[in-house]
Design a protein around this nucleic acid. Structure first.
Lengths: 212, 212
DNA sequence: CCATTTTTGTTAATTAAATCACATTTATAG
DNA sequence: CTATAAATGTGATTTAATTAACAAAAATGG
């Protein structure tokens, strides 16, 4: 059959990075083919779910055979645009920001923090992992010369809306925030929240509830 | 009506920390009552969803009035056990682990990293934010004296399963991992994954797809 | 104290995701 | 080349979550 033209479900897209990473690992270890049942074991996702997910991206498998790993990597890699470096900006270089900058997606060659910003004059000018910290007001100018595909923010909640307004003004459309406070943005701008406290609270809550 | 005895949906539990935090903010700012519509505006969740979520925890509101904020905080706080300090252990004190330890849930008085572990002899013995880094093999003994409610791991994927096996052996049942590799655990043990790379990839993917 | 307004809590409807079940396709062994 | 076994891709079903719609409850203003 031919690729669906139906809209791809959000959850299938969410799993795409997991598939991609796992398949790359398998390829690195010399595997050439895989069936949905094996893959399901590895990543703990039902084989049916995997097959349906894959089907949204084309007719990728062969009955009685499985999937060609290199082919999947090729297709998924294109969708994830792993062949073009995705330049990111980091806003907020406190402890967490610093750690992110030092790590800088080392294991993911196509993601790279290429510029960093902070409000604190004490850290502006400092260079971490080859990136020199600038005042946030420099972002607009930086964007002229380097393509920024998204922003990672460790800015605390109370200052976040203000920063986001500026980011939106700069034309940024993808923001990952480590502060939980929801901000208002135009609908073409995407904000994801990564709230560590909520994650831990939910984790403990789950344990609390399930062992009753 | 009386509280449901139906099982509380996973998604409603997921939102509980958001509700709790937002209500605390409102209380701090002197607010005494809130209606689902107002709260929905703030946290960008449909009022109906909020009302249904709340209903799982009892008959918390009054028609024509709304909800008493202090009362909600009381109820949700009990469920989240915010009055007992939840001691956590950190495994892996690299850049990220270090940042987590320095922050140490400063804004959340009931969550606290009370011990930290690493494999690297160079960091063992070092004290960060009053916590002295120990060899992982000490965990079992530490648990005898201090209650550890959960573990945060920044251990890289290749070493993670081994570490988790030890954690399970120690009786740990809640683990938050910054490494994406899924591990095998008994079904009474909960593992949450917080995969920064996937988050960023999904964020960019969403932008890419939606602005076609 | 009554009429009006507000807002809840919940039943019903809708939407989205996961899973089942199987016809179809392809590989493989004889 | 054919028969058998294996595994996909997808309609049909089930399960879960969200949203709509509204009756019932309480507040408020005359």
């Amino acid at each position: 059959m031919t690729p669906h033209n139906k809209k791809i479900p959000r959850m299938s897209l969410e799993r795409l990075p997991i598939y991609y990473r796992t398949l790359c690992n398998l390829a690195d270890n010399g595997y050439l083919r895989i069936k949905s049942a094996q893959l399901g074991k590895i990543i703990q996702i039902e084989p049916t779910t995997i097959r349906r997910d894959f089907s949204y991206f084309g007719d990728l498998g062969k009955s009685g055979y499985g999937y060609d790993i290199a082919h999947l990597i090729q297709i998924f890699g294109e969708i994830l645009e792993v062949n073009e470096t995705q330049g990111l900006a980091l806003i907020g270089v406190g402890n967490l920001g610093r750690a992110l900058l030092i790590n800088n997606f080392r294991r993911n060659p196509n993601l790279e923090i290429i510029s960093a910003y902070d409000a604190d004059p004490h850290v502006i000018g400092e260079t971490i992992n080859k990136v020199t910290i600038q005042p946030l007001s420099d972002l607009k100018a930086t964007i002229q010369t380097q393509q920024i595909k998204g922003v990672i923010s460790t800015v605390p909640s109370h200052a976040f809306q203000e920063v986001v307004d500026y980011l939106v003004d700069c034309g940024i459309t993808s923001i990952l925030s480590f502060a939980p406070e929801p901000v208002h943005v135009p609908k073409n701008v995407h904000v994801r929240y990564l709230d560590l406290t909520s994650e831990v609270q939910n984790l403990l809550l789950l344990a609390e509830i399930s062992d009753v």
